[in-house]
Amino acid sequence: MECTCSQYRAFDLDRRSIYKRIKATPAILKLLLLLAESGAAKLKLLQCPHCGQFWQTGREMTFGNGEYGFQVPAIIVEEWRQEPYLQPAAWMLYGVSQQSYYAANTFEPSDMPCGVAQCPNRAIRGSGVCEHHHIEQLQQFGLLRKRPEGRLFHPYNATAPA
Protein backbone atom coordinates (compact mmCIF):
# COMPACT_ATOMS: atom_id res chain seq x y z
CA MET A 1 0.00 0.00 0.00
CA GLU A 2 1.04 3.57 -0.65
CA CYS A 3 1.93 6.18 1.96
CA THR A 4 -0.93 8.56 2.79
CA CYS A 5 0.88 10.67 5.44
CA SER A 6 0.77 13.85 3.34
CA GLN A 7 -3.06 13.66 3.33
CA TYR A 8 -3.22 13.91 7.14
CA ARG A 9 -1.28 16.96 8.26
CA ALA A 10 -1.98 18.74 11.54
CA PHE A 11 -5.65 19.33 12.15
CA ASP A 12 -7.33 22.43 13.51
CA LEU A 13 -7.99 22.43 17.23
CA ASP A 14 -11.76 22.34 17.04
CA ARG A 15 -14.33 19.63 17.70
CA ARG A 16 -15.27 19.07 14.06
CA SER A 17 -11.64 18.50 13.02
CA ILE A 18 -11.00 16.13 15.91
CA TYR A 19 -14.11 14.05 15.19
CA LYS A 20 -13.10 13.94 11.52
CA ARG A 21 -9.64 12.62 12.47
CA ILE A 22 -11.13 10.03 14.84
CA LYS A 23 -13.18 8.75 11.90
CA ALA A 24 -10.13 8.62 9.60
CA THR A 25 -7.76 7.03 12.12
CA PRO A 26 -8.51 3.32 11.57
CA ALA A 27 -7.48 3.65 7.90
CA ILE A 28 -4.37 5.67 8.84
CA LEU A 29 -3.21 3.18 11.48
CA LYS A 30 -3.50 0.21 9.10
CA LEU A 31 -0.54 1.56 7.14
CA LEU A 32 1.75 2.27 10.12
CA LEU A 33 4.19 0.17 12.15
CA LEU A 34 3.70 0.07 15.92
CA LEU A 35 6.88 1.14 17.74
CA ALA A 36 5.63 1.38 21.34
CA GLU A 37 2.57 1.59 23.56
CA SER A 38 2.05 3.31 26.89
CA GLY A 39 0.00 1.18 29.23
CA ALA A 40 -2.13 3.50 31.34
CA ALA A 41 -2.95 6.16 28.75
CA LYS A 42 -3.32 3.64 25.90
CA LEU A 43 -1.21 5.81 23.62
CA LYS A 44 0.74 4.41 20.68
CA LEU A 45 3.85 5.57 18.88
CA LEU A 46 3.91 4.50 15.25
CA GLN A 47 5.95 5.09 12.11
CA CYS A 48 5.18 5.04 8.42
CA PRO A 49 7.29 2.34 6.73
CA HIS A 50 7.32 4.32 3.47
CA CYS A 51 8.21 7.91 4.40
CA GLY A 52 9.44 7.45 7.98
CA GLN A 53 6.90 9.89 9.49
CA PHE A 54 6.24 9.33 13.20
CA TRP A 55 2.68 9.26 14.53
CA GLN A 56 1.10 9.10 17.96
CA THR A 57 -2.42 8.26 18.96
CA GLY A 58 -4.54 10.07 21.51
CA ARG A 59 -7.84 9.55 23.27
CA GLU A 60 -10.12 11.98 25.06
CA MET A 61 -13.26 11.12 27.04
CA THR A 62 -15.00 14.25 25.75
CA PHE A 63 -14.81 12.72 22.27
CA GLY A 64 -16.16 9.32 23.31
CA ASN A 65 -12.64 8.05 24.02
CA GLY A 66 -12.22 7.63 20.26
CA GLU A 67 -8.66 6.98 19.13
CA TYR A 68 -7.14 9.54 16.79
CA GLY A 69 -3.75 9.65 15.12
CA PHE A 70 -1.56 12.70 14.60
CA GLN A 71 1.89 13.29 13.20
CA VAL A 72 4.71 14.01 15.65
CA PRO A 73 8.43 14.77 15.36
CA ALA A 74 10.84 11.83 15.25
CA ILE A 75 11.80 10.62 18.73
CA ILE A 76 13.77 7.84 20.39
CA VAL A 77 11.28 5.25 21.65
CA GLU A 78 12.62 5.27 25.23
CA GLU A 79 12.31 9.05 25.39
CA TRP A 80 8.72 8.79 24.15
CA ARG A 81 7.94 6.18 26.81
CA GLN A 82 9.18 8.61 29.46
CA GLU A 83 7.11 11.48 28.07
CA PRO A 84 4.77 11.04 25.10
CA TYR A 85 3.72 14.03 23.03
CA LEU A 86 0.91 16.27 24.18
CA GLN A 87 -2.46 15.18 22.84
CA PRO A 88 -3.99 17.91 20.66
CA ALA A 89 -7.60 17.25 21.77
CA ALA A 90 -6.63 17.60 25.43
CA TRP A 91 -4.74 20.80 24.57
CA MET A 92 -7.80 22.21 22.81
CA LEU A 93 -10.11 21.37 25.74
CA TYR A 94 -7.65 22.93 28.18
CA GLY A 95 -7.59 26.13 26.12
CA VAL A 96 -11.39 26.28 26.04
CA SER A 97 -11.63 25.89 29.82
CA GLN A 98 -8.98 28.56 30.39
CA GLN A 99 -10.67 30.95 27.98
CA SER A 100 -14.05 30.50 29.68
CA TYR A 101 -12.60 31.08 33.13
CA TYR A 102 -10.65 34.19 32.10
CA ALA A 103 -13.68 35.61 30.28
CA ALA A 104 -15.76 35.33 33.46
CA ASN A 105 -13.14 36.69 35.87
CA THR A 106 -10.80 39.62 36.26
CA PHE A 107 -7.54 39.56 38.16
CA GLU A 108 -6.60 42.86 39.70
CA PRO A 109 -3.37 42.91 41.67
CA SER A 110 -3.60 44.04 45.28
CA ASP A 111 -1.01 45.73 47.46
CA MET A 112 -0.37 42.46 49.28
CA PRO A 113 2.39 39.99 48.36
CA CYS A 114 1.49 36.51 47.17
CA GLY A 115 1.00 34.17 50.13
CA VAL A 116 3.15 31.45 48.56
CA ALA A 117 6.65 31.47 50.03
CA GLN A 118 9.25 33.18 47.85
CA CYS A 119 6.78 34.13 45.12
CA PRO A 120 7.68 37.68 44.01
CA ASN A 121 4.21 38.47 42.58
CA ARG A 122 1.39 40.47 44.10
CA ALA A 123 -1.73 38.70 45.34
CA ILE A 124 -4.87 39.35 43.35
CA ARG A 125 -7.80 41.13 44.98
CA GLY A 126 -10.05 38.72 46.87
CA SER A 127 -7.33 36.10 47.14
CA GLY A 128 -4.23 35.67 49.23
CA VAL A 129 -2.18 34.52 46.26
CA CYS A 130 -1.13 35.75 42.81
CA GLU A 131 -2.99 34.85 39.62
CA HIS A 132 -0.65 31.95 38.80
CA HIS A 133 -1.04 30.33 42.21
CA HIS A 134 -4.80 31.04 42.27
CA ILE A 135 -5.23 29.12 38.99
CA GLU A 136 -2.97 26.35 40.30
CA GLN A 137 -5.14 25.98 43.43
CA LEU A 138 -8.33 25.79 41.38
CA GLN A 139 -6.72 23.06 39.27
CA GLN A 140 -5.64 21.11 42.38
CA PHE A 141 -9.23 21.11 43.67
CA GLY A 142 -10.64 20.06 40.29
CA LEU A 143 -12.42 23.38 39.70
CA LEU A 144 -10.39 24.06 36.55
CA ARG A 145 -8.96 21.60 34.04
CA LYS A 146 -5.27 20.85 34.65
CA ARG A 147 -2.74 21.59 31.96
CA PRO A 148 -2.39 18.37 29.95
CA GLU A 149 0.85 16.48 30.21
CA GLY A 150 3.13 15.75 27.31
CA ARG A 151 5.80 17.16 25.08
CA LEU A 152 4.79 20.28 23.21
CA PHE A 153 5.51 20.18 19.50
CA HIS A 154 4.85 22.23 16.40
CA PRO A 155 2.18 23.20 15.40
CA TYR A 156 0.64 22.76 18.87
CA ASN A 157 2.87 25.26 20.60
CA ALA A 158 3.30 26.55 24.14
CA THR A 159 0.27 28.84 24.05
CA ALA A 160 -2.95 27.05 24.87
CA PRO A 161 -5.57 27.54 22.18
CA ALA A 162 -8.39 29.94 22.93
Rank of each mutant, 00 (worst) to 15 (best):
F11Y: 13
K23Q: 12
Q7S: 13
A24N: 11
K20G: 01
L13D: 13
A10R: 03
Y8T: 04
I22R: 01
F11G: 01
I18D: 01
R9P: 09
L33S: 09
Q7I: 05
T25G: 07
S17I: 05
T25P: 09
A10I: 05
D12V: 12
D12P: 01
L33I: 13
D14C: 13
A24F: 07
L32N: 11
L13N: 12
C5I: 04
S6P: 09
C5Q: 02
R16P: 00
L32M: 13
L31C: 02
S17W: 01
Q7E: 14
L29M: 15
K30H: 10
K23A: 09
D14A: 03
R16M: 02
K20M: 04
L13Q: 12
P26V: 10
I28V: 09
R15A: 12
F11A: 10
Q7G: 07
L31H: 02
I28A: 03
K30T: 07
K23S: 07
F11L: 12
A24I: 04
T4V: 14
I28T: 03
L29K: 11
R21M: 09
Q7H: 14
I18T: 02
R16C: 02
F11Q: 04
L31W: 00
R16T: 05
A24L: 12
F11W: 05
D12K: 15
R16A: 06
L31V: 03
A10E: 07
C5Y: 06
S6F: 09
A27K: 10
I22A: 03
F11P: 00
Q7A: 13
R15G: 04
L33P: 00
L34D: 05
R21K: 14
D14L: 02
A27D: 12
Y8Q: 02
A27L: 08
Y8A: 08
Y8L: 05
F11C: 05
Y19R: 05
K20D: 02
R15T: 10
P26C: 11
L32W: 08
L13A: 11
L34G: 08
K30D: 10
L29Y: 02
A10S: 11
Q7L: 15
S17M: 03
R16F: 02
S6K: 15
P26F: 08
D14G: 05
T25F: 08
D12S: 14
R21P: 03
Y8K: 11
Q7K: 15
C5A: 10
L32I: 08
D14V: 01
R16H: 07
R16N: 10
L29P: 00
L13G: 06
S17D: 04
L13T: 14
Y8F: 15
L33E: 07
I22C: 08
I22Y: 00
R15F: 06
K30A: 09
T4Y: 14
C5P: 05
L29D: 01
D12R: 13
K30W: 03
I18M: 01
P26A: 11
K30E: 13
I18V: 14
R21H: 10
R15S: 07
S17L: 06
R9V: 13
L31P: 00
I28G: 00
L34M: 12
I28E: 01
L33V: 15
L34Y: 06
C5L: 13
D12E: 15
